[in-house]
Design a protein around this nucleic acid. Structure first.
Lengths: 129, 129, 129, 129
DNA sequence: GTGGTCTAGACCACA
DNA sequence: GTGGTCTAGACCACG
């Protein structure tokens, strides 16, 4: 683990709810960092073992996290060389949009279940930007 | 189970994902029906046993569903008589607002994780009412 | 049911929590009224049937209420004549004291479970007369 | 179950009334132990299965006990790892105060029902610290 | 009849 | 290993 790696992930920078699956939360938060360009294409991630050590989680949990993100084509692993954020910016843009759409679809479903429009829901929640 | 009861809940009207906790989904959907006034204050719900039979779930699971909603003060239980939608409309209004706020807070967190405002997120998702 | 009877019990004057046994709550509240001299010795109570009708409860619930209070010697029933508050003021005084002692014992047990004295408990609760 | 776990809970140290809900009594008594600092923040509780075995109750009942306390934010559950006393001491202090206030409120209501002040009730019960 | 609780035992996802 | 959920079926108190 070199210095630049250790700068990539700090344990305090992840907000973890112990009652939800850990791997799920790490996936979500790493995905968001890639989508918001906080983690740039080509960035090298810490090894699974280092990630687990830094986060103080089980290595299998760390491995599962990376696997999920690979399946999403947001991470690329080159055997023996390490894991990197994909250089395929189209994939990243697609992920970004998918996250947004999933969030909005969810909001829309909640609104519908209350018999409201999305705008109506925002008003009821007294939301203001 | 009388006719009016059987009109309250149709098994087809619940959308259940078998991979998520059943009681949780029934709670959410009954809560939404109360919050959107589809289930009016004072309405009698089917008995735990009837609900279980209609939904083809275990009575224990049905009971747990009702208990969760009673804890939320959306249902009232009259010993030996049955379970009813609360007549306390303030509780219902509070639940309605809480559902909306939870949804909006969730949206806001996703937006934040992408480095966007809520408005920006809606735009990215190409949402239009 | 004559006029003076109907003045004895008003449904609104009882605070009932539907999730607790009804008979238990009526027993407690009638016992307290006798103990605090709101219901005087010799007062005639409504018949079981009238009590049930006024309170809109099941007659068996009303009967059980009266039975419990008879067992405590706070009510006396003369068959065919009705039910009366006992004229034995010693019984009433004893009940009064028993209620107080039970309440204080309960408080003491809670205090003990928190590792506090009763005085300490009152302070923690920020109680002031 | 290691030795330190088995020291946490002894079956004889719980006073259980079989005529009341078991889970309720375990909840009350564990809550009190947390509130009085007998169970310290971060302490690991026995596993649900061990707790059930030691107390000779069904694992379901044991699980329900832990879940109630988790809902109260007095326990935290780490998936696949176990259940721990919350490290959030504010929650513990709040629970401690809530227990005290509930007890005092109860006392106050009894006093009121007898037409007495709390001080008057304590005198009637001949309570002395 | 109602809901509430408990037991027994199974299966699952997670770490 | 952990806790979470579900099923099946029993018993109880209450109204």
């Amino acid at each position: 683990m070199n210095e630049s790696d250790s700068q990539v992930f700090h344990p305090e920078s992840f907000r973890i709810d112990p009652s939800r699956p850990l791997y799920e939360q790490y996936v979500e938060q790493i995905r968001a960092r890639i989508a918001c360009r906080q983690l740039l294409p080509g960035t090298r991630l810490p090894s699974v073992r280092d990630f687990a050590a830094v986060m103080r989680i089980n290595p299998t949990t760390a491995a599962r996290t990376y696997q999920e993100l690979e399946r999403d084509h947001l991470l690329e692993t080159f055997r023996g060389q390490g894991t990197y954020v994909t250089r395929d910016t189209a994939q990243i843009a697609a992920a970004r949009k998918a996250i947004a759409q999933a969030a909005v679809r969810e909001l829309h479903e909640v609104a519908e279940s209350l018999g409201l429009s999305v705008r109506g829901l925002l008003e009821l929640a007294e939301w203001e930007e």
